[in-house]
């Protein structure tokens, strides 16, 4: 920024208290760091944890049903069948987080494809694709999700695909907007001028320049997918027992709310923690990537 512009911005009196801005940035940054740490910890615990705990997630122990935490090695207590809650939480983490990541990959890929195609070709193709996106967004996504899940045999793979099928629209919108604005810029025109074919221009020029917003949207999509899995499974159309997911662990929790509240509290906390972590990271990334755009 030139010094004249610097003072000009000062003159218009739109400055922000400097100390607190740095503090805020720091704080945001800390939240993102917290998010990354929590995600890494959850993934590690889910992958390694179940081997370290001397209980099997499916081992039914009728004598120790509803053991409140901590109970003789059952750190988080036991459920209505006497199964160790902690090991089930970690096993459920494997499922819920996998679905989150996989659905993110599928929906980001599909949303990017739709967005780039619409943004690059424009015209009737753009109108048709974006109208389709608009129409998809008219439904409450949970409605579509439930209907699809109710009619399709639920498994990790199908639930992942169903969540992806109802999560790609935001990515498509973001990418379409980016690509459309990038297209107007000189270097894309230059690439076309020298006769680069359409597909080449899309992959080599447009995509790398739209990568920032895609990464942000993808991170937020993981949060969304974890949440969606929880909703469908809670409502009984998602991951089926005896396989555990954070959502279906809450399935039966409501009826034991008075006697065994920990059955409801722990899985919900895990969902909130993981979703919040991805949201924090996404938010931090958005700030960081915006800052880089400003410097250009």
């Amino acid at each position: 920024m030139s010094s004249a512009a610097a003072i000009e911005s000062v003159e218009t009196a739109r400055t922000v208290k400097p100390g607190s801005r740095a503090w805020r940035r720091f704080c945001r940054h800390r939240l993102a760091l917290f998010g990354i740490a929590a995600i890494v910890l959850m993934v590690l615990a889910s992958v390694v944890g179940p081997w370290l705990i001397p209980f099997d997630q499916l081992k039914i122990d009728i004598r120790h049903r509803f053991a409140p935490p901590p109970w003789e090695g059952h750190l988080f207590g036991t459920d209505m069948l006497g199964r160790d809650l902690l090991v089930r939480l970690l096993m459920a983490g494997r499922i819920s987080l996998s679905i989150g990541f996989l659905a993110m990959i599928v929906s980001t890929a599909f949303g990017t494809f739709i967005g780039v195609t619409a943004g690059y070709y424009g015209g009737a193709i753009r109108v048709a694709l974006m109208r389709f996106v608009d129409a998809m967004l008219c439904f409450p996504s949970i409605f579509l999700l439930l209907i699809l899940a109710a009619f399709i045999q639920p498994s990790v793979a199908t639930i992942t695909l169903i969540i992806a099928a109802t999560s790609w629209m935001e990515v498509a919108r973001v990418v379409e907007g980016q690509v459309r604005s990038l297209r107007e810029r000189d270097f894309i025109l230059a690439a076309e001028m020298i006769g680069a074919p359409g597909r080449y221009v899309m992959l080599r020029e447009l995509l790398p320049n739209a990568i920032g917003p895609i990464v942000v949207a993808a991170t937020l999509t993981v949060a969304r997918a974890v949440l969606m899995e929880a909703y469908v499974s809670f409502l009984g159309y998602g991951i089926q027992a005896p396989m555990a997911s954070w959502g279906n662990m809450l399935n039966n929790a409501q009826q034991y709310l008075g006697s065994a509240p920990w059955l409801a509290i722990f899985p919900g906390l895990m969902i909130t923690l993981s979703v919040a972590s991805f949201n924090f990271v996404g938010d931090g990334l958005r700030d960081a990537l915006d800052a880089r755009l400003d410097l250009r």
Binding site: L250, A253, A264, G268, I271, T272
Partner: peptide, 10 residues
């Protein structure tokens, strides 16, 4: 980030 149904349970 809080699932609505869980908040309901709480």
């Amino acid at each position: 980030s809080i699932p609505t149904f869980w908040f309901g349970l709480i």
